[in-house]
């Protein structure tokens, strides 16, 4: 059974391969944003005398990581399958003997793997030379990070499917999805590292699922979360994955029965 979903993921990967020029443009855009953010942070740090939770090099590394993984996260700007719900062609999926949630998940993962190869890795290499991005040499850190970033991708896909699942009712997802994505962009620490936030806001972020997308894996990368703390972070991510997978499956099941009642 798993083979089928692997096949879906592979197909989704291959589909993306057609857009290589767009990918090149995207890579340039990532670099541009990284440059702006790094220049802004450099200016902020220039006049700074008191010690900061992250030093300048760590922030630069963090910024590079966000740009490397921006497209890998199955969150922002992925609406293809939601479009099939909107135009009704999703009803075709009912005829197939596969689980729709599983199919969607496989599709998102295929895209993520594509972006790991086409975006994340090139960004790592270039950022190492251009911005002196820091790369950990400790094997435990690397293994823990790989584990955590994988969970982050899975969590992103699970949140994505849950948010887009509402399309069954609203038929135009841009509203709710936009809202969910805004929250995730901010509370994941994508815009400003959570470590630089005021204490009270950090407390709020710790109770939300979004920190599992960016903050936790990147903190492990930077060696800010080690040993037991890193394992706790990974446990937290797993818990959120479980919650959102269940929620997503529930929404899709309800959605399909809604679709049947409506007659597509």
């Amino acid at each position: 059974m798993l083979r089928v979903y692997l096949e879906f993921a592979k197909k989704s990967f291959q589909k993306r391969m057609q857009y290589r020029i767009a990918n090149l443009a995207g890579l340039l855009t990532n670099f541009f944003f990284a440059t702006v953010r790094i220049l802004v942070f450099t200016a902020f740090y220039a006049a700074q005398t008191e010690p900061m939770p992250l030093d300048l090099n760590e922030v630069i590394t963090y910024v590079c990581l966000t740009q490397a993984f921006l497209m890998v996260m199955p969150l922002w700007g992925r609406a293809e399958i939601a479009e099939t719900i909107k135009d009704g062609s999703v009803a075709m999926q009912l005829a197939k003997p596969v689980d729709f949630h599983g199919y969607w998940f496989a599709d998102e993962c295929g895209k993520s793997i594509y972006y790991v190869i086409m975006r994340a890795i090139p960004t790592f290499v270039l950022a190492r030379f251009l911005f002196d991005m820091w790369i950990p040499l400790d094997l435990t850190v690397i293994i823990l990070f790989l584990f955590s970033i994988t969970l982050a991708i899975v969590l992103g896909a699970a949140i994505n499917i849950t948010a887009f699942g509402t399309v069954f009712w609203t038929l135009d997802a841009t509203g709710i999805v936009g809202f969910a994505f805004t929250l995730s962009t901010f509370f994941s620490g994508f815009l400003v590292p959570i470590a630089l936030w005021p204490e009270w806001l950090q407390q709020i972020a710790a109770w939300l699922p979004f920190e599992g997308l960016v903050h936790l894996p990147f903190s492990i990368y930077l060696g800010k979360l080690t040993g037991g703390a890193a394992l706790t972070a990974i446990f937290k991510q797993s818990l959120w994955v479980l919650i959102f997978v269940s929620l997503g499956r529930l929404i899709l099941r309800r959605g399909f029965s809604h679709l049947v009642i409506q007659g597509g």
Binding site: V40, F44, Y45, A47, Q48, M52, T170, T174, G175, I176, G178, F179, T182, T185, F186, L191, V192, L196, W197, P198, L201
Partner: peptide, 25 residues
């Protein structure tokens, strides 16, 4: 309405990030 509202929020949180940086630096 949701979309207009979410656009408002997107940019609001966008600005909050700027404010957060100033709160720190």
């Amino acid at each position: 309405l949701m979309d207009t509202f979410s656009h408002f929020c997107v940019t609001f949180l966008d600005f909050t990030s700027v404010a957060l940086l100033f709160a720190r630096f």
